[in-house]
Design a protein around this nucleic acid. Sequence first.
DNA 1: AACGTTCCCGTGAACGCTCACGGACGGAAG
DNA 2: CTTCCGTCCGTGAGCGTTCACGGGAACGTT
Lengths: 332, 332
Amino acid sequence: MPTGTGSRRVTIHDVARAAGVSRQTVSRALNDKGEIDDSTKQRVLEAARTLGYRPSRFARGLVRQDTISVGLVIPDLLNPFFTEVAAAALEAARARGWHVLVYDTADSAQEELGTLQVIASQVDAVVGYFSRSESEIEQWTRGLPVVLIDRGEDAERFSSIRIDGRDGVRAAVSHLAQAGHRRIGMLDHAARTEPSVRHAWFADALTACGLGDGPVCRAEQSVRGGEEALELLLGRHPDVTAVFAFNDVIAIGALRAARRTGRQVPRDLAVIGFDGVTLGTLVEPPLSSVALDIRRLGALAVEQAARLLTGDSPLGPDDLVARAELRLRESA
Amino acid sequence: MPTGTGSRRVTIHDVARAAGVSRQTVSRALNDKGEIDDSTKQRVLEAARTLGYRPSRFARGLVRQDTISVGLVIPDLLNPFFTEVAAAALEAARARGWHVLVYDTADSAQEELGTLQVIASQVDAVVGYFSRSESEIEQWTRGLPVVLIDRGEDAERFSSIRIDGRDGVRAAVSHLAQAGHRRIGMLDHAARTEPSVRHAWFADALTACGLGDGPVCRAEQSVRGGEEALELLLGRHPDVTAVFAFNDVIAIGALRAARRTGRQVPRDLAVIGFDGVTLGTLVEPPLSSVALDIRRLGALAVEQAARLLTGDSPLGPDDLVARAELRLRESA
DNA sequence: AACGTTCCCGTGAACGCTCACGGACGGAAG
DNA sequence: CTTCCGTCCGTGAGCGTTCACGGGAACGTT
């Protein structure tokens, strides 16, 4: 068993010497591409096996530039929305024969910087979520194709898959209004300092429906965060009878908190989330949501990365849109 | 904007020429390691920027063999258990500064073979789930460190993180027996032809508790699969009052099917799963489960990969165990 | 004036592999 | 016998980067 603890790496040269042939013949044997006698091929393969030879991916990649790998950057793989985005991107990448390096930045700007610093030297393109400034991203990616996802309004230098939930949120609020709700609150994202884009859609929808502006609470990006935020919101505004959440995870937290405090959903409190994750079908009651086509979202991001990579006809901002539409279940 | 559609790649040489210096000086500027005048450094950096230069990861990797990357092979990232395993492995790998290539084999033996064929040339070690035979795995990995997870009893050539749920399942069945259940069924894994190891634990536990053997139904690895399997099981064996499921996903399906058919959980039907995924806390009622420490599981796999990689003191089979223990919530 | 230092910078070599070529050999065709 | 072709194999070059070394210029020291 050749383990090669500290010793030199086994190269194609060693195999050649052991088999009594040249490097090229070894290469022929391993990549089975003809021009080689079958007996010598077996001999080479045998030598390679006993020596424990394994070609260097770097040397190989250096000479034939065929394999493409893309970096996928995700804030939190355990957040079911990002799980689904990752799965979608993985699927799209596999269809292209790409390799995918996944980086979970743990919702931390620090970790994000860390990945930014190492990712450029490992991949041919980058896809995913970033919270840092575009100039900071550019500084580390340096001309590498980058596709951002859901980068709000400030995606200028990079391609970004824009998420357009305006109509969907409008439909959601409108549905709530028609159900008789007059005081609708929102559980917004907590990380950013300013209100989110989704909140802007929410506010617009409220005025469009002729409702006064709704109270808002910031929620951590977790079920727990949603629970806490809902209690806070309801504590401060007991007249609220419906809530719209920044995303489904938070909405599910709200659902749970509502039931735990004796409210019945949707009778006492209606809840609508955003994203449309599968998890929403498993909770009680099933969660209504302004839903995205997440598989398409991931596929779109990879598609654009591919176009940027080859250089031909990248999609324009108008094509890089994922629209969300209201998917009614039972929570509202 | 130098996009370089079909043209030659921009090399360090081009930058050197443009800046009027040597390759080495360019290298010094880019990896900022002193021995360079600040003004020339700026000049080089400027040249690199305008040329759109980006060092080749292959050339760099060839000469300084520092970056390590590991392949993580998962049957289905959307299955919450594997999501958590992946997240755990990602975290452990990041702590080591490793890069992780993720492959989702889509529960398909064909896709698994496909990854097997390409993965060896891309990573320094492989961690994850495989259904194919060890010889087949070995054929493609060729001496690459491989760490299998939950490979049942037949892990001989490779390191495998064994999942030991014997005591946990025993505790689960025992708990059900003490609650008065006499007829306990199981929803087993459907893919394999023979009954799973978990079923063996279940059967042993039944006899240990003095109960006759329980009826079994095979379930697809999904919530839907669990629903269908439970209906089948209950249709065939109406006297069953409790079920143990191969895993939590299936158990959640069972939970839903039970409630949908008017049964109350756990009063009319008790349900216990396996794995202990977080999702179990979100369903109604919260799922009891024979729970694994999934983060430790992932960390252990990566740890062993690291040891195999450096060659020193790999963990033995006795250390490569993840024990599962009963975690009671409300479904039983 | 000779010498040692410090600061920059450049030159060969090496990393491990594949590609493009060319050559040796044997047998079939002329 | 010559010519040709097909089969098999080896040699040089090159992929793009970093490492180890060496050297020149400028400055200060004795």
